[in-house]
Simulated scan of single mutants.
Amino acid sequence: MSAYSKIEVSAPGSIMLMGEHAVLFGEPALACAVDARLAVKLVPRPDRQVLVDSALGQYRGSLDQLEPMPELAFVLAVIERYQPKLQQGFELTIRSGFSHTVGLGSSAAVTAATTAAVAAYAGQSTDPESLFPVALAAVHQVQNGRGSGTDLAASIYGGVIGYDMAPAEVRPLCGLPPIALYYSGYKMKTPDVLALVEQKATRQPELYAGLYRMMGQTSRAAEQAVRDQDWSALGELMNIYQGLMDALGVCDATLAEMIHRLRAEPGVQGAKISGSGLGDCVLALGLVESELPWEAIPVSVAATGVEISYETN
């Protein structure tokens, strides 16, 4: 039997601060964990059965033959990674403190939390440096090698992180900038946005390559601004990055209106799309005092990433 009678893990959601699109072309990205969290509880079983209870679906199967279930693909991919080291089954209960319809990295958070819980159960290391490569491999398994892993790194490490995709490198940064997040009311799936941008890039490949390089320069300067906790400089760089997102063609009329309304706030130092664009969220740096006609997502930067607690037999 396991040394534990229960393992509980929570992982934060995340948002992109900078580096959208360009991170897929070898440029750095910035992301942060937010204080909306997802919880996973693992209870050992005496047999080889695996039970998962989640808002996305219920699963029952054997450790010896995990059957695919698209709604829980990330969870099952993680379990598969630790399969050879698991002697017994378990029950996994997943509860989220935020909706998967809003861009707070719910898939990354559930992958991070599940990885930590199953790693602990399998007697493996649960430090961020050990969890991240396993979790990233699970994401790539589900997404056919796609996905930068930026949001996953933020969920596992917490706080603000700088990130490079290939080879994967996570740089935890000090400083928790004040943020405000607003949801446009709709979103286009990231793969569909990427396909649209790719289509445009084939007509002007050199110009788009130049845009990605400029995005990378902006992200590097922003990483230094976070290190210096120079929020005024970070705000200016967010506005510059937004101009580059606009040039990519991922800003529509609603997002543009949201950005300009937010920039007009006296307490806001910068505003940009957070995520791939053509919907989803707009991120502001600073304090918003006005009532705006879009859904405010009440989040702040979370200093901690994955948190684990145990109950012993």
Rank of each mutant, 00 (worst) to 15 (best):
P177R: 01
L86F: 02
A222Q: 01
Q217D: 10
V170T: 13
L173F: 03
A153R: 01
E20Q: 07
R171F: 05
D228N: 13
L72T: 14
P44K: 04
T218I: 00
V282S: 07
L24F: 06
E67Y: 10
A11E: 01
F132E: 09
A256Q: 10
Q242K: 02
F74S: 10
M258Y: 05
E80D: 14
E291D: 15
R48M: 09
E67L: 14
S232W: 04
Q141C: 09
E307I: 00
E71P: 02
A39F: 14
S96H: 08
H260W: 02
D230N: 15
V160W: 06
G145E: 14
E307P: 05
T115G: 10
A138D: 07
L255M: 14
L42M: 11
G249M: 09
R60T: 13
P293C: 12
S184E: 06
E236N: 14
A264P: 01
V50C: 00
S5R: 15
G279W: 05
S99N: 11
P298V: 14
C281T: 13
R227E: 03
M188T: 15
L173E: 05
V170I: 15
Q217V: 06
G19I: 04
S232D: 12
D127S: 03
A303I: 07
L51C: 00
A39T: 15
P266V: 05
K85Y: 12
L38K: 04
V268Y: 05
K189M: 09
Q65M: 11
T111V: 07
R81Y: 12
R203P: 02
L255F: 03
E91L: 10
R203L: 15
L38C: 06
A33N: 08
L278T: 00
V160C: 15
A77I: 13
E223H: 06
W231G: 04
D47V: 05
S107K: 13
L17D: 07
S62W: 12
L211E: 05
V9Y: 03
V9H: 05
C281H: 03
M245Y: 02
A256N: 08
Q269M: 15
V268D: 02
L63D: 11
I297C: 10
H140P: 04
H21P: 08
R203I: 11
L211K: 08
